[in-house]
């Protein structure tokens, strides 16, 4: 399968402001926690939830190797992911090396107090305009991230932790993105019988799409054959 993860974050020169030092320290701590993991293979389910796409839940395997090798393999069947980059791992959002971290205060997210930190890439060529991280300071876990890109719209990631929280690996990850309206000419679909009610059609106009990953099992630091990332 073609590599589906495009890690958009390119190298950025680090720049600090006095104001950002705490934020940066926190980001580094989170990063350090994640760096305990050299590689992993995660097994789980992938659910694509786009209003106008009816897709079954599929089983996936995600392969990761430090620093930024990532591959999603659907066990069988077709995978549908938004174009332009699904970052399905916490490390990827922290893959930046050249950024400015800004403390944007605190918020309560799903009942947990989180620190809001905005990362601004310094490289003008970067597709990412801004990434906002919602970090549980106590556990050093990224609970949510929101990224705005130049080319590929905005997307959000929410992470839910369980058994592997100590390594910063989530049990569930929800990737949300904006979708355009679905339009398909009848000449292509050859589907001339259109008796769908307008309220049903309206439901399909939901602007947000989601891809949900639920991991059931991680195999951590057991080494991964490099060939997997090549294919």
């Amino acid at each position: 399968m073609k590599k589906i993860i495009i890690v958009c974050l390119s190298s950025i020169v680090l720049s600090f402001t006095v104001n950002a030092q705490d934020a940066d320290a926190l980001v580094k701590k989170v990063k350090a926690k994640l760096e305990q993991v050299n590689d992993y293979v995660a097994e789980g389910k992938m659910k694509t939830d786009v209003a106008f796409i009816k897709a079954p839940v599929g089983r996936v395997k995600v392969y990761y190797q430090k620093p930024n090798k990532l591959k999603l393999v659907k066990e069988k069947g077709i995978s549908i992911l938004p174009k332009g980059g699904v970052s399905i791992n916490s490390s990827s959002v922290l893959g930046l090396t050249n950024y400015t971290a800004i403390d944007a205060g605190e918020q309560v997210l799903n009942g947990t107090k989180v620190k809001v930190i905005k990362l601004l890439p310094l490289d003008e060529a970067s597709d990412i305009v801004i990434t906002t991280l919602y970090i549980d300071e106590g556990q050093l876990l990224i609970k949510k991230s929101a990224t705005t890109t130049k080319e590929n719209g905005s997307f959000e990631m929410e992470m839910y932790y369980g058994n592997y929280a100590n390594l910063g690996l989530p049990d569930k990850m929800v990737f949300s993105f904006n979708v355009k309206d679905y339009k398909m000419p009848k000449g292509v679909t050859l589907d001339f019988d259109d008796d769908m009610k307008s309220e049903e059609k309206l439901k399909l106009k939901k602007k947000k799409g989601r891809v949900e990953f639920i991991y059931t099992n991680y195999i951590i630091n057991k080494g991964i054959d490099a060939a997997i990332f090549k294919s």
Partner: peptide
């Protein structure tokens, strides 16, 4: 054989291979 992915007028449908 694999899943089938079909585009319809108002939505697309993916049906699992075994289904």
């Amino acid at each position: 054989t694999d899943d089938i992915f079909l585009v319809k007028n108002n939505y697309a449908v993916q049906i699992a291979k075994d289904d």
